[in-house]
Each structure stands twice: as C-alpha cells, then as structure tokens.
C-alpha cells in the first residue's frame, strides 16, 4: 500500500515539477488531485496488480500466478512458514476486517472533514471575491459621486459667475448713479447760474427802464390813466 503510494507519487513527480516550473503548460500535463484512493481488491491488494496480467493471461491469471508462485516458494522451502508468517496471516485478516467494517465509516467521516476543510478555503475564496466585488461596486458608486461633484462644482462656478455679474451690475449702477449725480449737480449749477443771470438781467432792465422814466412821463402817464378811468366811468 505504502510503496504503491510512493510509486504513484514518483510517477507524478516529473509532471509536478514541470507544472511547477511552467505555468503555461497544456491542461493535460497538469497534475490532478486524486480525490479517491486507487481501487483495491480483497481489502488491501491494489487493483493494478491484477489488471496488469489481464492482457496476457485473462482474469484468472493473477490468481494462478499468486498460487503458482507461493506453491513454488513453499515447496522448495525458499519461503519457510515460521512464526512471522502466522503473524502476517493474522494481521492480514485483521486489516481486512477493520477495512471492511470500519473503512466506509472512517472514510465518510474523513471525507466530511475534507469537505469542511475545502469548504473553508472555498468560502474564504468566495468571500474574498464578494468583498472585492463590493469594493468595485463602492468604487463605481464613488466615481458616480465624483461625477455629481463635477455637477456641483459647475453649479458653484455658475453661482460665482452670477455673484460676479451681480457685483458688476451693482458697481455699474453705483458708477451710473455717481456720474448722474455729478451731471445733475452740473446741470443744477448751470440752471442756478442761468436763473441768477436772468434775474440779474431782469433787474438790470427794470432798473434801467425805471431809471429812464422821467417825472414828466410819469405825470403824463398818470394823467392819461385818470383820463382813461374817467372815460370808462360813465360806461360802467
């Protein structure tokens, strides 16, 4: 059993070495984990020890070979039946009984453990995948959020532009008002100057006119007025 395992492993070794060295080897070259042990006949005898005879001897060959060889060894006393032989027989029977009786139960229990072990690795793998997928999802969300930030920044920029516009207009209005105030002031000054000039002119004219009126003219005018009033009186 053990030597068989060692042989099987030895057969696998070059393949494994190749597989370990180059990852690009074809899928057929890669070693595959044997989930179940190799088949055995009569409890512990490897199946391939029987099947190796089949092409030459048929199905009875291996038994004939076993019986023939043991008969030869025993009859020539090459193999002597001493105490070790009987111990061997007892151990063979014991192993057979133990394997047949306990084998399936133990194998099932171990398989369960192996499945659990595998499941642990598998679950850690899937959980890792899940967490990575979540990370990707979150990253995408963050990117989406960042896009929103862009929109927000655009809005902020527009807001600032609006504020600038408002300030500009306000200043424009201030400038307008200030200019208008100055101009109005000038206009007012002009108007006042004109009024004053006019007043001066009127006063000058009136005084000059009044200066030019002689007392005779005034007297004549008064006489004329009284005459006019007298002429009007009878009609009233």
């Amino acid at each position: 059993m053990l030597s068989r395992l060692a042989l099987r492993n030895a057969q696998l070794m070059p393949i494994m070495a190749r597989g370990a060295q180059s990852m690009s080897s074809a899928a057929g070259d890669r070693p595959v984990r044997m989930e179940k042990p190799s088949p055995v006949r009569h409890g512990i005898i490897p199946e391939e020890w029987f099947t190796i005879f089949y092409p030459k001897t048929g199905v009875t060959g291996p038994y004939m070979f076993g019986i023939g060889l043991s008969t030869y060894l025993l009859s020539k006393e090459i193999y002597v039946l001493e105490h070790e032989y009987y111990t061997g027989v007892s151990i063979f029977i014991m192993a057979l009984v133990v394997i047949k009786k306990l084998g399936p139960t133990v194998a099932a229990a171990l398989d369960k453990q192996i499945d659990k072990y595998e499941g642990d690795w598998e679950s850690s793998r899937t959980e890792n995948m899940k967490s990575l997928e979540e990370c990707i999802e979150n990253e995408k969300k963050e990117q989406w959020r960042a896009d929103g930030q862009k929109l927000l920044i655009q809005a902020k920029k527009e807001n600032i532009v609006m504020q600038l516009e408002a300030t500009y207009r306000e200043r424009l209005a201030t400038v307008y008002n200030e200019v208008k105030k100055r101009l109005d002031y000038q206009v007012n000054i002009q108007a006042v100057e004109r009024r004053l000039a006019q007043k001066q002119m009127v006063q000058w004219i009136i005084s000059n006119v009044l200066k030019s009126i002689t007392p005779e003219q005034e007297k004549a005018n008064l006489q004329q007025c009284i005459a006019d009033l007298q002429s009007l009186a009878p009609r009233a």
Partner: peptide, 29 residues
C-alpha cells in the same frame, strides 16, 4: 506473546491454527 502464539503454528493442525489465528488477532488488536 505474539511470537509465542504464532510459533506454535508450524507444528499445529489446521483446526488449531485457526484458533491460534483468532487468538493472534485478538492479541494484535
């Protein structure tokens, strides 16, 4: 003990050997 039991094998009859093997199995367990 194992050797004592199994060394009786070569000189025993088949029936005795079967008993011997049985005892041997118990002892081996």
């Amino acid at each position: 003990l194992i050797t004592l039991i199994s060394s009786t094998g070569p000189s025993s009859s088949t029936i005795l050997i079967s008993f011997m093997v049985l005892a041997q199995i118990l002892l081996l367990s």
